[in-house]
Amino acid sequence: MAQPEINQRDLRSRSKEIMDAVAGGQSFTVTRDGHEIGELIPLRRRRRFVARDEFTAMSRNAVSVDITAFRADQDAAVDSEAVDPHER
């Protein structure tokens, strides 16, 4: 589905209407002199809370992690000679 095009002049003169549409989930392609110059798209909002039931359902299919192998992988990736930047 193609995004509706709006030209620079429409964006200026109808900014409230257009921004309200973007806030409602609508995206637009912005043009100037007949050339596409950008897109107005809604921000993706990250959820900060997941309900316990939903988390439990998602976790059922999660891959189990071997904690010993995980720590070994971490140790192998970390420079054991790293210096604490806060020590003098």
Rank of each mutant, 00 (worst) to 15 (best):
M1I: 01
A2V: 15
A2Q: 14
P4D: 12
E5P: 05
E5Q: 03
I6F: 02
N7T: 12
N7H: 07
N7E: 06
Q8A: 10
Q8C: 04
R9Y: 02
R9V: 02
D10N: 07
D10H: 07
D10Y: 02
L11F: 15
R12T: 14
R12W: 11
R12E: 09
R12K: 15
R14Y: 04
R14G: 06
S15F: 12
K16S: 13
K16M: 03
E17S: 12
E17I: 03
I18G: 09
I18T: 06
D20A: 15
D20G: 08
D20R: 12
D20C: 05
D20M: 10
A21C: 06
A21G: 05
A23D: 10
G24D: 13
G25T: 04
Q26G: 00
Q26A: 06
Q26R: 12
S27K: 10
S27E: 10
F28Q: 14
F28W: 14
F28E: 11
T29V: 15
V30F: 03
V30I: 15
T31A: 04
T31R: 10
R32F: 08
R32S: 14
R32Y: 04
R32V: 09
D33H: 12
G34M: 13
G34R: 15
E36A: 15
E36W: 02
E36K: 15
I37F: 02
I37R: 03
I37L: 02
I41G: 00
I41D: 00
I41A: 11
P42W: 05
L43W: 09
R46Y: 12
R46I: 09
R47S: 14
R48W: 05
R48I: 08
F49V: 15
F49E: 11
F49M: 07
V50L: 06
A51F: 02
A51E: 12
R52D: 14
D53I: 10
D53F: 06
D53G: 09
D53Y: 04
D53M: 07
D53T: 13
D53Q: 13
F55E: 08
F55V: 10
A57N: 02
S59L: 06
S59Q: 07
S59A: 14
S59C: 07
A62W: 11
A62Q: 11
A62T: 11
V63M: 10
V63R: 13
S64A: 10
S64M: 04
V65N: 04
V65Q: 05
V65K: 08
D66M: 06
T68Q: 07
T68N: 09
A69Q: 11
R71T: 05
R71Q: 05
R71I: 08
R71C: 01
A72L: 05
A72F: 01
D73V: 02
D73P: 00
D75K: 11
D75G: 06
A76L: 01
A76I: 00
A76Y: 00
A77N: 05
V78G: 00
S80R: 09
E81I: 03
E81K: 12
A82W: 13
V83E: 14
V83K: 15
V83Y: 01
D84Q: 09
P85W: 02
P85D: 02
E87F: 12
E87K: 15
R88M: 07
R88Q: 09
R88V: 06
R88A: 08
